[in-house]
Simulated assay, not measured.
Amino acid sequence: MAVRRLRVEGVLQGIGITVGLLGLIGGFVLLAVQYRPYSVPTDSMAPTVQPGDTVLAHPVKGSQIGRGDVIVFSDPLWGTSAMVKRVIGVGGDTVACCDSAGRTTVNGQPVSESYVNTSSTSAVLLGDKVFSAKVPAGRLFLMGDNRSVSLDSRSHLEITEGTIPESEVKARVEGTVWPLSTARSISRTTAFDALPGPRATAHGPLAALEWTVVGGAALVLLSAAAGTVVGQLRRRSSQRARSS
């Protein structure tokens, strides 16, 4: 009977470790296939992305991007490295600053952006500069969430209305992975949903994959620990039986 119980416990432990490893390894593989890491050195996207964060971004075409998406892009007129900004306007839009409440407008409609950093005490607020830009077809108007310090489309208005070509888009940011203390998913915004035209796009399976990896690792550890605890309890029981 004891042998049978030992075999059942061993089989259950083996199943738990196997399933956990499949989740852990499979989740990592899918993350590596579907996402690319990018380091963000500045605070132009704070508080959504903090300086020093490493983000995970899903490769997409610029034509698939909508207003409100946070993207990774590279434009030689802006610099030599990849940058992270939020799409505010797409081809055909008129982006302007600002209405009486200080909100950016798109095609005359004010947009309430809850993610914008409003805590800055900078003396010169780029977010308060009056401007109006007509976005050419096939191009995107970008702004950082930390409007007071972000060097974005507003800083390049003299060149194609400050926009970048859709072809320069590398990926859509969906979460942060490092440091681990701040790792999280970045939710799709609904700020632009009332406007006709391309909205922020649906995100990929990042959150599910992260939970798969975490759950797999936890299952491996718990299964291994359970086997160790059961073995110790069995040895103590056998020792007491012999001593009695």
Rank of each mutant, 00 (worst) to 15 (best):
V87G: 06
T121Q: 15
I186G: 00
F192T: 00
S74R: 14
A183Q: 03
A82M: 06
K129W: 12
A171W: 09
A133E: 12
E113C: 01
R199K: 14
Y115K: 01
C97F: 10
G102L: 09
E113L: 05
G68Y: 07
G144Q: 10
V124M: 08
C97N: 10
L77Q: 13
L151C: 01
Q109E: 15
G102Y: 07
D145C: 05
A183L: 03
C98A: 10
D75A: 12
P76I: 03
S155L: 04
D152S: 05
K85R: 13
R188D: 07
L180H: 09
I164R: 03
L126I: 11
K85P: 01
A137E: 12
S150V: 10
R172I: 15
T201I: 14
T189C: 02
A200Y: 08
L157I: 08
G127S: 15
E166P: 08
T176S: 02
R188S: 09
A200L: 05
S81W: 01
D99N: 14
E161V: 09
H156T: 10
P110M: 02
V84W: 11
T94M: 07
G79A: 07
V70T: 04
T163G: 04
S119Q: 14
S112R: 00
S114E: 15
A191D: 12
G92T: 03
P76S: 04
C98Q: 13
V87K: 03
S74C: 00
P196C: 02
D193M: 01
P196W: 02
T182D: 14
I164V: 13
L151V: 12
A101G: 06
L140W: 07
S114Q: 15
Y115T: 12
E113Q: 11
C98D: 12
T121M: 13
G66A: 00
F73E: 01
T189V: 09
L142D: 06
T201W: 06
V84G: 02
T190A: 05
T176K: 05
S187C: 00
R86Q: 08
V169L: 02
E166S: 07
